[in-house]
Amino acid sequence: MRTLYFDCFSGISGDMVIGALIDAGADPVQMEEELKKLNMDEEYNLSWGKVVKNGITSTKFDVILTSKSDQTHEHSHSHEHEHSHSHEHEHSLGHEHNNSHVPHSHHGSRTYKQIVEAINEANFNESVANMSLAIFKKIGEAEGHIHGLPLEKVHFHEVGAVDSIIDIIGAAILIDQLGIVSVQSSAIPTGSGHIHIDHGIYPVPAPATLEILKGVPIASNDIRSELATPTGAAISAVLAGNFGSLPSMTVESIGYGAGSKTFENHPNVLRVIIGETQ
């Protein structure tokens, strides 16, 4: 059975997942074409390329937001906890995929309902749509629980931001493209310390991340940084059928996806291992 294993020794985020899958041999050009079905491609450009993190060659994936996106959608500080961990510079308030981050008013955010409609109307194949919807639902329920709102009332400044939509649906497209039948994952290190989001200074893991990881083994880690983002946590929580050590498998391909932060003593990458299990 074709199995994908997330080796999250430095945490997990949406952009790290896509970088690792591309590094393992997935086709980003086909993903880019599929994503055009969302009719959002005027709002972003995608880039990917090789970087070296603490001696490991890995793939860095970025969503670069266009000025059209800046005018029409919210990138408020509520999104910062989503990807702040992967900033190279120590600007913890920056937008993950857009270093020229400018806060905007809240009226441009996408709602959970709008995201679901966009996925349903995009005519993705069934497995891509199902994976994407399940991941968004996981995050939406967590955000709703924290803020005391029903799912249909949840506004996604965080997850509705264009880069997170691309990260989640892009990951689903690549996993489907690779013919993955089963997903497993290591325990998830969340990191420690504090982060700034639009509601103030919050502990790590952020409340939404911790809510998403209910029922998922969390690994202890003394790194004072956000290692698992809500998107990364939801991708692993929804897709992985089992959490533990590397399963017995015949390894076919390995990929390393880079975050933007650099740590002194270990590479800030997500490793994916793809192969055949019994």
Rank of each mutant, 00 (worst) to 15 (best):
M1N: 14
R2C: 08
R2T: 14
T3I: 09
Y5A: 06
Y5D: 05
Y5K: 08
Y5W: 08
D7P: 09
F9G: 03
S10M: 09
S10V: 05
G11F: 05
I12C: 03
S13K: 06
D15R: 09
V17A: 13
V17L: 04
V17E: 02
P28Q: 09
V29E: 13
Q30T: 15
M31G: 11
N39A: 10
N39M: 02
M40C: 10
G49A: 10
K50L: 09
K50R: 15
K53D: 08
N54T: 07
T57H: 07
S58T: 11
K60A: 12
F61C: 05
D62Y: 00
I64T: 07
S67K: 14
K68S: 14
D70P: 00
Q71F: 11
Q71M: 14
T72P: 00
H73P: 00
E74N: 15
H75V: 05
H77L: 15
E80Q: 12
E82P: 04
H83S: 12
H85W: 08
S86M: 14
S86W: 09
H87E: 06
H89C: 00
G94M: 03
H95R: 00
E96Q: 12
E96R: 02
H97F: 10
N99S: 08
S100V: 01
S100T: 06
P103D: 08
P103S: 09
H104G: 14
H104N: 09
H104K: 15
H106A: 13
H106Q: 09
H107D: 13
R110C: 01
R110Q: 07
Q114F: 00
V116S: 02
V116P: 01
N120S: 13
A122F: 12
F124V: 10
A129T: 15
N130W: 02
M131Q: 13
F136L: 04
I139V: 15
G140T: 14
G140Q: 04
I146R: 04
L149V: 10
E152D: 15
V154G: 07
E158L: 11
V162W: 03
D163S: 09
D163V: 10
I165V: 15
I168Q: 05
A172F: 06
I173N: 06
I173F: 07
D176C: 03
Q177L: 01
L178W: 03
G179D: 10
G179P: 03
I180C: 05
I180V: 15
I180Q: 07
V181W: 00
V183S: 03
S185L: 04
S186K: 05
A187H: 05
T190H: 00
T190F: 00
D198L: 12
H199T: 10
V204D: 01
A206R: 00
P207D: 04
A208E: 04
T209S: 08
T209L: 03
E211H: 09
I212L: 06
V216W: 06
P217F: 02
N221K: 03
D222S: 14
D222Y: 03
R224Y: 07
S225G: 00
E226N: 10
L227I: 01
T229W: 02
P230E: 02
G232N: 02
I235K: 01
G241S: 15
P247Y: 10
M249S: 11
V251Q: 11
S253E: 12
G255D: 02
Y256K: 02
G257P: 08
G259V: 05
S260Q: 10
T262V: 15
F263E: 11
P267A: 12
V269S: 04
V269T: 12
R271Y: 02
R271K: 15
V272R: 04
I273Q: 05
I273V: 15
I273N: 06
I273C: 11
E276M: 13
